[in-house]
Amino acid sequence: MRRVNASNRARLAPIALGLSLFAAAALLAPSASAYCRTTSCKGVGTGARCVPVRPTDCGVELFWSKPCVGFSMQKDASAQIDLEDATQIFLEAFQKWTDADCGDGKHPRIKVVNLGPVACNVHEYNKKAGNANVILFHDKVWPHAGAGSTLALTTVTYNVETGEIYDADMELNGANVEFTTGIDNVLYDLPSIAAHETGHFLGMSHSADGTATMFADYMPGSMELRSLENDDIDGICAAYPPGDPIPAECDPTPRRGFETECSPPPIVAEDGSCCATAPGSPRSAGTSALAALALALGLAAKRRAVRARP
Rank of each mutant, 00 (worst) to 15 (best):
W142Q: 07
L12D: 13
F94V: 08
L12F: 12
T253Y: 12
Y166V: 01
L151T: 05
V122K: 06
T287A: 13
S65F: 02
P14R: 06
N176H: 07
P220F: 00
A10Y: 05
P143F: 07
S263P: 04
A32G: 15
S284K: 14
G70E: 10
N159V: 05
D82N: 14
G235E: 14
D139W: 01
R37A: 14
F258A: 02
S33A: 14
A147W: 03
N159P: 01
D234H: 15
A6D: 09
A6Q: 11
V268P: 07
L151R: 02
L187R: 10
L19T: 02
Y166G: 07
V268W: 07
V60W: 08
W97M: 08
R9S: 11
G148L: 10
T211W: 15
H107K: 15
T181V: 01
K111Q: 15
A26C: 09
V186P: 06
A132H: 13
R303S: 02
D231M: 04
P52H: 01
F258S: 07
M204Y: 11
A145R: 09
C36L: 03
S20I: 02
S273Y: 00
P108T: 12
P52G: 06
G47Y: 00
C250Q: 08
D184S: 12
A79Q: 15
T253K: 10
K302Q: 07
H107D: 12
S284I: 14
C274S: 09
L27I: 13
L83F: 02
K75Q: 15
A195R: 14
D232Y: 10
A93Q: 01
Y218V: 00
D101Y: 11
G272F: 04
V268T: 10
L202S: 09
G199K: 05
E92Q: 14
F201C: 06
F71H: 08
R2P: 06
V51E: 14
C250E: 11
R109K: 15
T87R: 13
P245I: 13
